[in-house]
Structure formats: C-alpha cells, structure tokens
Design a protein around this nucleic acid. Structure first.
Length: 813
DNA sequence: AAGTAAATTTTTTTT
DNA sequence: AAATTTACTT
C-alpha cells in the first residue's frame, strides 16, 4: 500500500498495530503526526473501520485541524460516508455534555455556559468579597489557580475541604471560596474549563447508557501528546476504552511541559501497567534537525534525572554550529535578532524563521526591532482576538441570550453601553440576588416586573433602566432561539447583538480611532459568523462554544515568514531557523521554577522542546540587563547555556562574552563563570582556573575597547580605527586577571553610565558598593531620582536589602 | 453616574 | 512600562 511507502519500519509497525493498547514513544521530529494520520487512513482503507468509529484527541484545535487536513488528503480518493472525529479534549467534552449533561442531575441544562479563566476569576473575586474575606490576603488569581489545580488532580470541593480541615485557616478559607464558587457556577448554569472534563468523567461514571453509547461509537481511539494528559483526561480515556482496548497513545516524556496544569507524566511512564497487554514502539529517528541541534538538545536533557532513556538519531547532515550572542541589554538583543533575520530573509525568503521566548512579555522588544527594519512578522499568543473587550462584550450578549442565568455575562454588559446603571444600583441588585439565592437575571426580572414584596433600594430611574435592559435581552433571546438550532443564520444574531443593544451606536458616537478599531474588530466577528453559517455548522451555541475554546495557537499561520511565540506554543511546530532568546536565569529557567527540582526539570524539558524546533539553524541569545516590571535588572546567563556542548557553538557576541569565559575555563561550574562575569570575586578554587587566560590575550583586550566605542549599533562590528584610552590601556598590564572581569561587567552595563569613573556619583544597577555594616554588595536595581533614589543591593551573606541612597552611606567598591 | 487622576499591580507557561 | 484597579472630582 503506497501510503506506507514513506515510512520507516518502526513507523510502519506503529501504523499496522491496529488492535489493542499501543504506546508510541515518539521523539521530537520523529514523524509522529505522519504516523497518526497514516494510521487513521490505514484503519479506514485497509481494516475497513468506519471513519465514524475513530476518535483522535489532541490538546489544541490547531493540532486537530492539522490532522484533519492531512487525513483528508490521504483519503481524498476514498469513498467514505463519514469522517473520523478529530477533536480536542475540551471540545469533545462539550460535545458530550451538550447532549447528556442533564443525566447528571446536578441542575445543569444543555444550554450551559462556558466560563473562561477571566470569568472564573471574577466569580472567585466576588466569592471572596461576599464571604467577607480580605482580597489582599487571599488573591483571587491565586485561589482560582488553587481551585483549578485541585480539580485537575481530581479533587472535588469535599475532598479539598476535608484535606485542609486541620491545617491553616488560609486554606480553610480557600475551601470556603471553592464551595461558594461551585454553587455560583451551578446556579449560573456555567462550567469552567476544568468542569468540562470533570462533568464528562462524572457523567461517564454515572450513566451506563452514556458510557455504552460512546464505547460503541469510538471503537478506535488515538491520543496525541499523551505526556500532557492529567488525571481527569486519563479517567476519561479509561471510561471510553472500557469495552474495547483499541487505544493508541503517542507522546514523548522528554516533552512533558504542562505539569503546571497538573499533567501527570506517570500516565505515559506507566501506560504498560494501566493497559497490561500494551505494545510499545519507539520512534527514534529524527527527520527534522541536524545532528548538531540534536546533540545540543540531548546534552541539555541529559541533565534531567527522571527521564526515559531514548536516543534520537538522524540521517541528516551534521549541519552548522549553533550561533550564540550575548547582548548588553534587551534592545541590543532585539537589534541583533532583527538584523540576522534581515540577512537570512535576503538570502532566502522562503525559509521560515521563529523567535521563541519563555514568556509573552518578551515579545515587545522583538516586535519593535522587526518593525524598525520593516520585516513582516506574525505573533502568536498574547492577546487573542476573542480576548478583546468588544468581542467579549458581544459574546457576553449572545451568551446571555442563550442562558440569561449567566451572571458574569449579565454584569459584563448590563451597563455597556451605559444605561445609567452604576455601581450603587448594581451592588443593590446583586446583593439582593445573593440574599434570595437566585441569579441576577431572576432578581432583575422580579424588580422590573414589580414582583418584589420588600422595598428595594433603587431609584425609579434605575428600575426603568432595568426594564429596558430586560427588553433588550428578551428581544435578543427570541432571535437567538431561532438561530440556536440552525434555522436562522448565526450572523443575524451577532449583528443584532451589535446593533440592537446600542453597542455600535456607543462606538460610533465616540468617534475616536480606538472606537473605529473596535468597530472593525466587530466586523471581523460578523465575518467569522458569516463563514460559520457557510460551513453549515451547528448554530449559535456551537459558534459561542467555538469562541470559548479557541486558543491563540490556532491562529498560527504556517506560511508566515517570521513567527514569534512562547516555547509552549511552539511545541509540535518546526522551523528551518530558530532564535531562542532571553536565555537568562530567572527568565529561562523561570524564576518561579528555580527553587524546585522537578519544576527545574520541566524548564529543562521546555528548553529541549525549544531547541528541537529547529531544522537547520539555531541561535541562542541572552542579555546582560533587562527591564522587568519597568525596572532595570542585572540578568545572568541561563544555566541551560552551560549545559550545551560549548564546542558546538559559534560566538557572535561583540567582544568577550560569557561563552569566551566558559570556554577558556576548564571549570564546568557555570555559577563560577557567571560570578566572574558579573565582576564579583570568584571562590578561590575557581579563581585559579581563570588566571590570565582571556584577559591577557591582546585580542580580547582590543575587542573590549573596540566594543566600548560601538554602542549605537551592536550588530555591525565597529568599522575604522579605534582609539585606546591611554589610561585604561596602561592599567591593563598591571591588572590582575580578575579585574578584567570588572571591565567585562562595565561592557555589559548601560553605555550612558560609561563615563569616566571619577565623575560617577551614583550607584547604578550592576555596580559594586560597600556598606558599613553589610560589606561589599552588588546593586541589582535602582529606582527613583534625586533624594528618593532607592537601591536594591545584594550583599553576600546578608541577602537583598532595599536602601535609600541618601541615607545608606554607600561607597564604591 | 461618569469621567479623570492616582495608585497599584503585573509576568510563567494554556485548554 | 503598561494595564488595571481605586480614589476623587464634577
């Protein structure tokens, strides 16, 4: 059969092992998606499995869409009367619940609403407030994430509560919030993302009918990225495979990067225990990257202790060495990346390039530098279309139209556009609703219809406004009801939500550029609805579900020349050229992971994922200083840099860099290198190692001074002659090796601070100071001006201290 | 009640 | 530094 001809023996075996549990351990770039899609096609064409009986589950819509189109291509010549279901876990749950949630008998109806993280936060916040707890001590975001973690571990409120009963009152308070949160969501007929999984599992557990129904339907199940599944997803799979054991999971423990979302790596490590007859197939041949890139990835991941042994190999050529660049600050990092990209694009514009970073906040600098060079780029993540306020507003109207008990949606739009319902009236309305234990909508209706016996503390004007709002919603509800089943185009209702509610009028009256942009976004929403109608999907409800579950990854344009995204989002993708930026301790690995060994290992897997995205070229960069929260901080090179084989790296930094030290030293301890780089005193043993090596090299010194003059543009090397400051030049010969590191430190600091030392009268970030009590320390941050300058100084042995410059009586060290 | 000014917080990573 | 929340006017 020709679809198998492009596969290697292991892949063919993976495709042909149709029945029984199968674990495919697929290394990065080993043709995993190809195996899954060919396997689906094989089941249909060779094993004559009905497409309808096949389910493939992924984590993102993008992955599902990608598979769908590839399967479609493979099956284009086949006569088939159904199509396999390719879905994310969450969409599958919505599908099941929209059908049968009422069988749960928990009060939920099929018109339930989905709450996104934002909505959940609001509910948690309201609960904290209504329980009389202090928001300052119990941050809503923190509580929400604790609730979410518990849910994903499979803990419900009662279990959570019983577990914390004897412990501290903070956790007891969280349990109370958890309880109220669940009640509120139930009352609002709303499910959060986690509930989608929980309720599905509960439903499958409770109802044999439902279980049978889906067991009969899904005779063959495939799960992609199995290392990212959590306890709930595992439970769900267990139920779905109860009758048959045709479960094929694909994954790579080295790419498990969703532990923070309670993904449980044991699911993949213990697959053979869960499914005793399981067969295991290893895919170790990498088709994506050069040997050099694989070596770098392997070198890093081998520092992890908890890792299944697996060695990727490739028949690809060795390829180019990695490129390394050390920037003085984040701007110069941006300029370097942009200018290299410009060069690459000039040479071959067809080669796709990715800039990968640890956090979304890092994207800005690169956006600016690319824009300056007029290079088109695509940015994935950050603010998605469906997260824009105006889109969420209209979606909220639509959600209300289908489920008026959705308090969050109601409160979002009740005064948008302004309907003279301010804080006072709304507080009265909501607190009344809470008192009576009804939804806000029900209370509003009661007030509007004067069906309330007790006097209500509302002005006639407010009551009238509520009546009007009620009418608006009811009118929209009628239209929505027609579109919910599909009799009426979804786009009509979307337009009604924009026009009949006064929303577009509000924007047009504003007559500003911003309002204009918002109107355009709303037009986009209408367009999306029109497209939706054309695709003959399942009506308004489906459209809104789609909006709730669509993610940022889904708008990734595989043809874009330059793409920027987080490493997490890049998983599963590949690019000829990859820039992995911001490799600094505290950023990558992230500071929140530095204190926990298993979290650090997850960061390392993340680095592994990042590196293995590259096909031909990999750049790694870091900056010596960086703005965090609007403050300049000194940034140290990432420990992951030191875990790479240094001999595989080419240094593109201007002048001496972390790499040149790491290389010249025989010491493998990155911390010493970093300490030296910062200009601090290295512990005795390491100090000996550094003696003279680099700084007595004339080249290095020349480089250093050359670079001192090259501050406007880091990327191009300084041209023409460069003067050497006689004073400094002279001192060079007298200097002990270590003082050279001070110079390197100076190189890394802000050019503006590079004035003759005698005139420096301030202690900037990166400089060394002596304190009468704490001794020598390194200035980490400087904030404020004049007499109000505050310094954050790190004193070895004393930790970080915040000092007022005026009173601290510091001297230079 | 609504708009503006001031204060406070935010950054992991995502369905 | 930017965005969000709160406090303060009108």
């Amino acid at each position: 059969m020709d679809i198998l001809s492009s596969l290697n023996p292991q892949q063919i075996e993976a495709v042909k092992t149709a029945d029984g549990p199968l674990l495919i351990l697929a290394g990065a770039g080993s043709g995993k998606t190809r195996v899954i899609t060919v396997r689906i096609a094989y089941l249909i064409t060779e094993r004559k499995v009905q497409p309808y009986n096949i389910l493939a589950v992924t984590f993102t819509n993008k992955a599902a869409g990608e598979m769908r189109s590839r399967v479609q291509t493979l099956l284009k010549d086949e006569k088939i009367d159904s199509f396999p279901l390719l879905s994310t876990f969450h969409s599958l749950c919505v599908r099941i619940l929209r059908q049968d949630i009422e069988k749960l008998e928990e009060g939920y109806t099929r018109s339930f609403t989905i709450y996104d993280t934002d909505d959940s936060n609001k509910v948690v916040k309201a609960c904290i407030k209504d329980l009389g707890l202090d928001e300052k001590q119990l941050a809503p975001r923190f509580v929400r994430s604790a609730i979410s973690s518990a849910k994903n571990r499979g803990e419900d409120v009662d279990l959570f509560t019983s577990r914390v009963e004897q412990t501290d009152e903070r956790r007891a308070a969280m349990a109370k919030v958890f309880k109220m949160y669940e009640e509120r969501l139930n009352k609002a007929n709303a499910l959060d993302f986690d509930d989608l999984l929980i309720k599905t599992v509960k439903l499958l557990r409770k109802s044999k009918d439902v279980r049978d129904k889906y067991n009969d339907r899904f005779k063959y199940i495939l799960v992609d990225e199995y290392q990212d599944t959590n306890a709930l997803q595992f439970a769900m799979i267990s139920f779905l495979t109860e009758k048959q054991q045709n479960i094929c999971v694909v994954g790579d423990d080295a790419q498990s990067i969703y532990g923070f979302r309670q993904a449980d790596i044991r699911n993949i490590l213990e697959f053979e225990q869960h499914f005793p007859d399981a067969k295991v197939i290893l895919l170790e041949q990498n088709y994506r990257s050069t040997q050099t890139i694989l070596d770098a990835a392997d070198s890093i991941i081998s520092n992890n202790t908890k890792q299944k042994k697996k060695k990727l190999w490739t028949a690809n050529p060795g390829g180019e060495r990695l490129f390394y660049f050390q920037a003085t600050d984040s701007d110069s990092e941006g300029r370097f990346v942009a200018s290299r990209i410009e060069e690459h694009r000039r040479r071959d514009a067809s080669e796709r390039i990715a800039i990968l970073y640890r956090t979304n906040a890092q994207s800005r600098v690169f956006e600016e530098s690319l824009r300056r060079l007029r290079i088109d780029y695509n940015i994935v993540g950050g603010f998605s279309f469906y997260e824009r306020a105006e889109i969420k507003d209209i979606i909220a109207y639509l959600k209300m139209a289908l489920n008026p008990f959705d308090d969050i949606a109601l409160l979002r739009v009740i005064n948008t556009p302004p309907r003279s319902l301010g804080k006072t009236s709304l507080d009265e309305l909501t607190s009344r609703a809470r008192q009576r234990d009804v939804s806000v909508w029900e209370m509003l209706c009661a007030i509007a219809d004067d069906k309330i016996d007790q006097p209500v503390n509302l002005t006639p004007r407010a009551k009238e406004a509520m009546r009007k709002f009620k009418a608006v919603v009811e009118k929209l509800h009628e239209k929505a009801a027609e579109a919910a089943g599909g009799e009426k185009p979804v786009s009509d209702v979307v337009i009604a939500a924009i026009e009949d509610t006064g929303y577009s009028l509000m924007l047009r009256v504003e007559n500003s550029d911003e309002a204009e942009a918002r109107l355009e976004n709303l037009e986009e929403l209408v367009n999306a609805a029109v497209d939706y109608d054309k695709a003959e999907e399942n009506g308004l409800r489906d459209f809104i579900d789609h909006a709730a579950l669509i993610s940022d990854t889904d708008k990734y344009d595989g043809n874009a020349g330059v793409t920027m995204m987080t490493v997490h989002m890049a998983k599963g993708l590949e690019f000829p050229i990859v820039f992995l930026v911001g490799l600094e301790d505290g950023i990558f690995p992230h500071s929140r992971s530095l204190n926990d060994q298993s979290e650090l290992e997850e960061e390392r897997r993340l680095a592994y994922v990042a590196i293995t995205r590259a096909e031909k070229l990999l750049y790694v960069t870091h900056s010596m200083r960086r703005r965090v929260y609007g403050e300049e901080i000194v940034a140290e090179p990432s420990q992951f840099l030191n875990e790479m084989p240094l001999e595989l790296i080419d240094d593109l930094s201007r002048g001496p860099s972390w790499l040149s030290y790491a290389r010249s030293s025989t010491a493998k301890d990155s911390k010493d290198t970093i300490t030296a780089l910062r200009g601090e005193r290295v512990p005795e043993k390491a100090k000996a190692v550094y003696t003279g090596k680099t700084y007595n090299s004339a080249d290095a010194i020349a480089e250093f001074f050359k670079n001192r003059e090259t501050r406007a543009d880091d990327v191009r090397t300084a041209s023409g002659s460069h003067r050497i400051d006689p004073a400094n030049n002279e001192s060079r010969n007298r200097e002990k090796p270590l003082s050279g590191f001070d110079k390197l430190k100076a190189l890394a600091s802000d050019p503006k601070v590079q004035v003759p030392k005698s005139t420096i009268d301030e202690f900037s970030a990166g400089s060394h100071v002596r304190h009468s009590k704490y001794g020598k320390g390194l200035v980490l941050r400087r904030e404020g001006t004049g007499d109000n300058v505050k310094l954050t100084v790190s004193f070895p042995g004393f930790g970080q201290k915040k000092l007022i410059e005026k009173y601290a009586n510091l001297e230079k060290a």
